[in-house]
Amino acid sequence: MTPPRRPLLPPFQAALLDLDGLVLDSEASYRHAWQAAAREAGATLPEAFCRGLFGQHADAVAAALREALGPSFDQDRFCRAAERHWRRHLAQHGLAPMPGLDRLLAACRRHAIPYALATNSDAPYARECLELAGLAGEFPVMVTRDQVRHGKPAPDLFLEAARRLGIPPALCLGLEDSAPGLEAARAAGTIVVLVQRRGALRRRLRPLAQFACASLNEVAAWLEASAAFR
């Protein structure tokens, strides 16, 4: 008789999820908006540069853009143009949940594992994006950048999310897709799980995480396997 498969995850009691690139497939819309706004300003933003902005708070994004675009960078004009292009992109293409999100959240509910959102986005923006993706009300516990003192890569968002759930951070999965998020999850003392579909990026970020996979479907399978041994 084949012995039961050993759970892949250590004991945990909750899951803390990032928003952009983890819950929502939003990276393409941001990249399009930044690059289109840069073209209006007579500049070019390489794709690799845009990828480096993912997971950063708006203030950090603005600082990186200012450095890349030089002294002529007009932040207000750029932001207005980027938002216009972002909304136009969403009107054409929509905003979808990442593959496996529904399966993961269903597994959490089925096994009474509480979960929360911990995002570097501010609350109004996070709520709007969730609504656009058909996920309004899906995260009763949501901690946003404007609710804590420091954003990622500081641990504040994860610590506050764990506090609101009433679970020690060491017993929480910290699910992230970017370097700032992984650093925040590590600093908070969570069980750090990298979920990144791009193989090259996943390999580069792997040292920052305890576990790594390509999609939330894999996390859901791990959760199911671990729950069987709880």
Rank of each mutant, 00 (worst) to 15 (best):
M1N: 09
R5K: 10
P7F: 04
L9H: 03
L9K: 05
P11C: 13
F12I: 03
Q13M: 11
L17A: 12
L19R: 02
D20K: 03
D20V: 06
G21D: 13
L22V: 11
L24D: 06
E27I: 02
A28P: 04
S29Y: 07
R31H: 12
Q35H: 05
A38S: 05
E40A: 10
E40V: 02
T44N: 06
L45W: 01
E47L: 15
E47A: 14
A48D: 15
R51A: 15
F54T: 07
F54Q: 11
A62F: 06
R66I: 00
R66A: 15
R66L: 05
E67K: 13
G70C: 10
G70I: 00
D74V: 03
F78V: 00
E83R: 01
R84Q: 12
H85T: 07
W86I: 05
R88H: 12
L90I: 11
Q92A: 14
Q92R: 13
G94R: 09
L95A: 07
P99T: 12
P99W: 11
L101F: 07
R103H: 09
L105Y: 00
A107E: 08
A107H: 02
I113M: 12
A116R: 00
D122H: 04
L130H: 02
E131S: 11
G137E: 04
E138G: 03
F139V: 00
V143S: 00
V148A: 10
R149N: 09
H150V: 11
G151E: 14
A154R: 00
A154D: 12
P155K: 03
P155T: 03
D156E: 13
L159F: 01
E160N: 09
A162T: 05
R163P: 11
L165H: 01
G166K: 04
G166L: 08
I167E: 08
G174M: 07
G174D: 09
G174S: 14
L175I: 15
S178L: 05
G181P: 12
A184S: 14
R186E: 11
A188N: 08
A188Y: 01
G189N: 06
T190M: 11
I191P: 04
V193P: 07
V193M: 13
V195W: 04
G199F: 06
L201D: 10
L208V: 08
L208C: 11
A209S: 09
A214M: 11
E218V: 08
A221D: 15
W222H: 04
A225H: 07
